[in-house]
Design a protein around this nucleic acid. Structure first.
Lengths: 253, 253
DNA sequence: ATTGGACACCGATCTTTACCTCCACGAGGG
DNA sequence: CCCTCGTGGAGGTAAAGATCGGTGTCCAAT
């Protein structure tokens, strides 16, 4: 039950630093425990598994492996054995870097919520034109979702929302996006603070669900066109959508 | 770790039928296993637990208890013991009605996805005026989320999306809402099928995330006002939102 | 160059938790 | 009055999170 691509690991796995150190690791055959253990003989050839890594490099590599496994299987279905195996290390190593499964997950979650919020804030800061800002913000959601690794699943579809710390982080990431939009976009609408915030929430919801749906719809619509359509909806509304000529009377108000 | 309201059970728990049969059940003390077991003595007084119920009634009652526990704790944290205890029966009874935990969860999930889809379809069929339809559809999401019992969590925040059957049902419920809106609302916009669908997705996302956010925001905005604002966004767009008078020039395009 | 020490790693195991069934007991029909 | 069916508590089992003693390797100082 691998369920994962062979082992990307060549690509920048998580942070970008120290990543090149951990190439050419190799997964052992999953069932090869106890039967064909190499003893003495080709020990010292290091089986490509016993590569010693500096602490930080190992940590980064573990985070990458954990991301792959958590994304592919979800928190609960992912076993620490799977992550260790994916990383090409044994379980104790994992526990030398993270106190437990939850902490590992939280570290990962923090990474990716920050990435989303960062993208949105960047999009909002990239222009003074509000339509442009909307376009770029929705685009940020799409890019986030479309990013290699599928880490968006950790933020948008995390199981483990029963865990308060996870829930807090997920909700906080939405709230951060909402606040950013509220501050920069809705500042000049005539509604009060709470109501401007609600509009921003609507926008985030539109972007999030739209992006996820687009990703799962298998490329029948290009990303650019999808963003354009959603932005059109957000900007001009349904009433402003282009109507096809309706011969049989105005029924659409 | 009860984490649940004492035992609602008086309110219509799931289907409405047979529910009055199963009142006055009582939760046993959670840690009272093995210590203070009543033996022989007051047996026969039936402890209010041994109430025999017709099969269908029992099933409904079990579903109600399962809903409470799954909503309060999530799928993984919920134990079958908890559900049985909540329902005031023993575990074998549970397994006589459902083959396993998963099937129980799926039955519950089906109930509530159908409820959401039904509400939306009803909203769309309740008028011929498209603005009204939007209003009622967004309202349907809010009502669904605001409904007693918090069953929306099963649909919108289910852990266990790693289970294919669960994922399928959740995605299908969104898709059903999208299709319904696509058919009735977006039929007269000039975009093609796929693109109209994407607009509907945006609308669903706006409604879903908006409703969930509103629910968690603690009533700073009334439900009606929240719906009104989101509908305003969906119908007229951001550009159509009421502007406050901006003396310092048109910066907002 | 050698050697000592510290660090990193591994196989194997322990334990807990929670899903899912087996032996005794009490209420409704012939 | 007797039989059957449903109920109750105790247990088996399997998986997965967390850990221990032993081993190999890298670095630096003499």
């Amino acid at each position: 039950m691998t369920l994962l691509d062979p082992v990307p690991e060549t690509a920048r796995s998580v942070g970008g630093a120290y990543d090149d150190v951990a190439e050419d690791i190799e997964l052992r055959t999953p069932s090869g425990s106890g039967s064909n253990r190499e003893r003495g003989a080709d020990r010292g050839r290091s089986t490509a598994r016993g590569r010693r890594l500096p602490r930080h490099a190992r940590r980064m590599q573990l985070l990458g492996a954990a991301r792959d496994v958590f994304v592919a299987q979800g928190y609960h279905a992912a076993a620490m054995d799977d992550i260790a195996e994916r990383a090409g290390v044994s379980k104790p190593v994992l526990y030398q870097h993270f106190p437990g499964k939850l902490e590992l997950y939280l570290a990962l979650l923090d990474q990716h919520t920050q990435e989303l919020v960062g993208r949105v804030e960047e999009a909002l800061a990239s222009s003074h034109d509000n339509l442009r800002r909307i376009e770029r913000s929705v685009g940020a959601y799409f890019d986030f979702v479309d990013d290699e690794g599928g880490a968006y699943l950790l933020v948008f579809e995390s199981d483990l929302r029963s865990e308060p710390e996870v829930r807090r982080r997920v909700e906080q990431s939405l709230q951060a996006c909402v606040d950013a939009i509220t501050r920069t976009i809705a500042a000049d609408t005539g509604v009060n603070e709470d109501e401007a915030e609600l509009l921003s929430v609507g926008l985030c919801g539109l972007a999030e669900v739209g992006a996820r749906w687009w990703l799962g719809s298998g490329g029948t619509v290009s990303k650019e066109r999808a963003v354009e359509l959603l932005v059109s909806l957000a900007w001009r509304g349904i009433a402003g959508s282009p109507r096809r000529s309706v011969p049989d009377s105005g029924f659409a108000r």
